[in-house]
Design a protein around this nucleic acid. Sequence first.
DNA 1: TATATCATGAAAATTATTTTCTTATAATTA
DNA 2: TAATTATAAGAAAATAATTTTCATGATATA
Lengths: 289, 289
Amino acid sequence: MSILNAIQEKMESLHLKERALAEYLIKHPRQAVQMTITELAAQSGSSTATISRFCKTFHSQNFPDFKQKLATELVQQTAAPNRYQDIVAGNPLNEIVSAITANHLRSITDTTQVLDLNQLRLAIEALHRATRIDLYGSATSGIVAQDFFHKLIRIGKAAAAFSDPHLQLTSAASLTSEDVAVGISYSGETPETIHALRCAAEQGATTLSITRFGANTLADHASVRLFTSSAEVGMRRGDMASRMATLHVVDILFIGLVSEHFEQYVPRLELSYQTVKSYTSGKEERKNK
Amino acid sequence: MSILNAIQEKMESLHLKERALAEYLIKHPRQAVQMTITELAAQSGSSTATISRFCKTFHSQNFPDFKQKLATELVQQTAAPNRYQDIVAGNPLNEIVSAITANHLRSITDTTQVLDLNQLRLAIEALHRATRIDLYGSATSGIVAQDFFHKLIRIGKAAAAFSDPHLQLTSAASLTSEDVAVGISYSGETPETIHALRCAAEQGATTLSITRFGANTLADHASVRLFTSSAEVGMRRGDMASRMATLHVVDILFIGLVSEHFEQYVPRLELSYQTVKSYTSGKEERKNK
DNA sequence: TATATCATGAAAATTATTTTCTTATAATTA
DNA sequence: TAATTATAAGAAAATAATTTTCATGATATA
């Protein structure tokens, strides 16, 4: 457990000056790690002796050691905080920025942890062998489907992304056992996507689901299942973190596919890149402002 | 730049004992940050005086300060590796996964660092006041524009996203000084997006660019400029990290907007969420598999 | 009320760090 | 080559930081 948490927990049992010190540490940890013991004594209203003793009760050799442990903790915290944060009113902008950053980082690392390499391998192999690839998703998941679609056509795959429920079904109905259908839905409960994937399965297509971790209907209907982290609680006001997580999975799928069949796909990727570049090369003159 | 890198670079110009110290630091940084200056002097074969002087040439106040900076750096390094990794052939799947994860984490943290809060504030205010919001972007940036569009309509903004060059211009031509045009392009050199944004500017609309960091044409034409980290080198085979970075900026813009005008936007957000839920509630029976 | 316990800070002791001063070595010039 | 200068680098002094000891006073307990 972290030092700051440990301090917070012990707060009740602390004596007068120790508590003053503890409160200062919790309020201004970043300043504290920059101070000498004398400065901290003055700022927190305690004494150097108290501080020195205090440090030893928190598993530190001495004050400098304590400072270093605390500093390390603070860095790690900014790098990967341990809770998703909800949007609240009128926070200062810099706090909003770090909250969103934290959420995104978290959702990516969590998703990586939840990833099943065997399912991933199956998914990659299925995509590689597929004659046609259908991608189904609504709203935000539709965006992800679009993104995947953009990627797949760059390597010459016959892919298509559908957000329209009727088109989804229309396309699904025409799939064969040679084909793959990918259903994307964070909740795993989007009816249209479920219908489409089920229809694809009935035609014999290989079905792949990308949903949040945990039991859900879409995953139930898929033969290969990929999951994202599911910790986005109370974050529905934008479902950004879930989209990041889903894109993360899509990226891994795509790069896995390209990497496993490097000779085949990379030249196409390069070609698509060069072609777009050459056709849109009417490069603007940059004016000096 | 990091301390260890700086030391590595200066290595050539260092004197005998300084070099011995530098080499020790590079070889055993983790041990070094745990030592006192006397211990380090003994271990590295230099003296306390040399170390003290050495620290000051590397932008540290004193030895403890140096130690703390170095320690922080080491933690950050393990938390977020410092280079973007390219896709290569036939890597084991788990390595691909961690490489992509590292790239995404990196691009998000880097983008956060590069973010200018003042420009952000201006952007948010402009979006808030806008009667109409136009979003322009091609290919991957078009996806991001779509995503932003989805977000904005949830809070009742008259927004529209355009990937089609003709439509972009058509819409841009009808903007007024009450409106905002957002040009999204990682390179900042997509001709169609530049044209559209310039056209919008000519109509008196407020123009906002979201591009990679550094001089680029699109940013030149914008009155408010937001940047993403630009370190994606040799990563064109998918431009995933850049898309993550751009989405990150869009998310921050959106949440910033909602948060600054909480009472106005949050009810709409809730309403859109509830409405979608109620209309698509024909929830499937989950079959037990 | 008397006694014991213990938090606390002042000050002493210890330890850590910086600075000064000196020396020896290397570089430069005559 | 010798003389001169510059400077790297450590010893030791000076300073700063930290810990420990010890005295005090407050609080709890008998």
